[in-house]
Design a protein around this nucleic acid. Structure first.
Length: 269
DNA sequence: ATGGCATATCCTATATGA
């Protein structure tokens, strides 16, 4: 079973390239962030035509998250992160796909910091930590994935001072990410590629893609049972190299479950 | 300190992104 996350940065304008990536990468489940589309303008029909069932939470102009399932209907569990009814931003959606809980999140970037926007980021992070703890305690197979807007360590960003004041690299942001991992989640990319230079985001400015001046901020975290089934993880950087790309690239994992079709007895030779 | 680019909307301007 292949599971991916992709901050699409505008699902309507980027629909052709999204369909192209889906056709080529063939993920079984996908978490999308930054739809930047109200509910009614989400391209549901086109995605279904491409063979994907879908649940989503849109919002005018900003945010927006979705879960896609290849040849299946995601079973919606919740829209919105619990813990603050006044928070109306579309940043969290959760659904079951093939028996796996897909928790798709778009964490606030928190800039500028310090300030109310950074406070919101940390508060959102605390709510996520609480909810993740409940998910983990449930014992279900869970994938916690999306745009975390956190660069976990200095190894996850190119050599620069440009981001020193950025909310993505602050000690508080990193501590929150560490606190989450400490519950027992596995950062798939780092688990399989501990020493590699791997980025998932490259700013549009200053030829940062061409210089590979990137950041690793999109993560796929696995519950303990799924960690044992992790076979591969990577970033589809080719998507970032296409014309008019999102500033993020898709990140994926391959798990040894479900999608492997059993050969029934009558088909055995 | 600013700006470089990109997407969106109440669009000859402004908010957000990271």
């Amino acid at each position: 079973m292949k599971i991916a996350t992709f901050n699409i940065n505008g699902v309507r304008g980027r629909l052709p390239s999204l369909l192209q990536w889906l056709a080529k990468a063939k993920p079984d489940a996908v978490a999308l962030q930054e739809l930047k589309a109200p509910h009614d303008l989400f391209p549901e029909a086109e995605l279904r035509k491409a063979g994907y069932g879908v649940v989503w939470q849109g919002e005018k102009a900003y945010n927006g998250v979705a879960i896609l399932a290849r040849g299946a209907e995601p079973v919606l569990i919740r829209k919105g992160l619990p813990g603050d009814p006044s928070d109306k931003a579309s940043r969290y959606i959760e659904a079951a796909v093939n028996g796996v809980i897909i928790a798709c999140l778009y964490l606030p970037n928190g800039n500028p910091q310090p300030g109310p926007r950074f406070d919101y980021k940390l508060a959102w992070f605390e709510r996520l930590i609480l909810h993740a703890r409940a998910l983990k305690k449930s014992g279900a197979p869970v994938v916690l994935l999306g745009d975390f807007n956190v660069v976990p360590t200095d190894a996850d960003i190119y050599e620069t001072t440009s981001y020193d004041d950025n909310a993505l690299v602050q000690p508080d942001s990193r501590a929150a990410y560490g606190k989450l991992l400490k519950q027992g989640w596995t950062d798939s990319i780092r688990h399989l590629h501990p020493d590699d230079t791997i980025y998932t985001f490259w700013d549009y400015f200053r030829r940062r893609w061409e210089r590979n001046a990137g950041l690793r901020i999109d993560h796929i975290l696995l519950s303990p049972d799924l960690k044992l089934k992790l076979r591969a993880a990577g970033v589809d950087t080719w998507v970032r190299g296409k014309p008019k790309p999102s500033d993020h690239a898709p990140v994926w994992v391959e798990l040894e479950i479900g999608a492997i079709r059993k050969t029934s007895a009558k088909h055995k030779k």
